[in-house]
Design a protein around this nucleic acid. Structure first.
Lengths: 114, 114
DNA sequence: TCCATATTTCAACGAATATGGAAATGATAG
DNA sequence: CTATCATTTCCATATTCGTTGAAATATGGA
């Protein structure tokens, strides 16, 4: 992962609402969830949410697909893992100190646990 | 780790120069290195560097101590691990998918490898 | 077609950020 | 004490960020 992309990913996560959004999507699993559901869960104005989604998407941390009138946003787990790999890369002076794949979500995850 | 601290840590790392500074300090190991050496290595103005050190320090990612006229900055590895733990915390829906201690630097690390 | 729903786009604003120059502070040597 | 070195503080500036309100776009249903 290029440093410029790392900075973009970190910047994308370095904001209260966006961190919440991303974590919610992570918990939602690879299926993702509609923008409206995120807006309701986090009590965010739809235009504000679009702004934040854009940043996460530009950083590659999130993907979108349309389903009817809804836009379904989903976390990009592989990107997240790349970021974590980069952060731990030079951690112990070149010695690999973290596993290659840090997070492997199961394909099905319907409900977010309370 | 509290979410507010996570945001602060991410924001601290989400900037080109600061990411360089932190990685340099990570490679320098727990001993740290003087501000001047960092300034020279990364070609940063001393006042600019102070600004960035402050952010890293406020985020808890870096510590300082005085040694003569030099200020020695050192990466805070435990804070880094806390951050990584937080990021992977809800990664797999509550299932722990990353080790507890991700990075364990050896105490001695004199030279940064090229 | 007309309407409601879901989301995005646009323009604007105050707040925070990154950097630069000049001056100030703290520590050591002579 | 004075001079010098290492770093910080202060002030100014241009840029970017997060949020809001209003209007626009896309989809599906009656």
């Amino acid at each position: 992962m290029e440093k410029i992309n790392v900075v973009a990913a970190l910047a994308a996560l370095a904001q209260d609402n966006r961190l919440d959004v991303f974590r919610l999507l992570v918990q939602a699993g690879p299926e993702g969830m509609p923008a409206g559901a995120v807006a309701e869960a986090l009590d965010l104005a739809p235009n504000t949410l679009t702004f934040h989604f854009d940043r996460l998407r530009t950083a590659g941390l999130v993907s979108v697909r349309r389903d009817g009138r809804s836009m379904i946003y989903a976390a990009q787990f592989e990107k997240m893992n790349e970021l974590l790999r980069f952060l731990t890369e030079n951690c112990c002076g070149g010695a690999p100190c973290a596993p290659a794949a840090i997070c492997k979500p199961s394909r099905k995850r319907a409900k977010v646990p309370a």
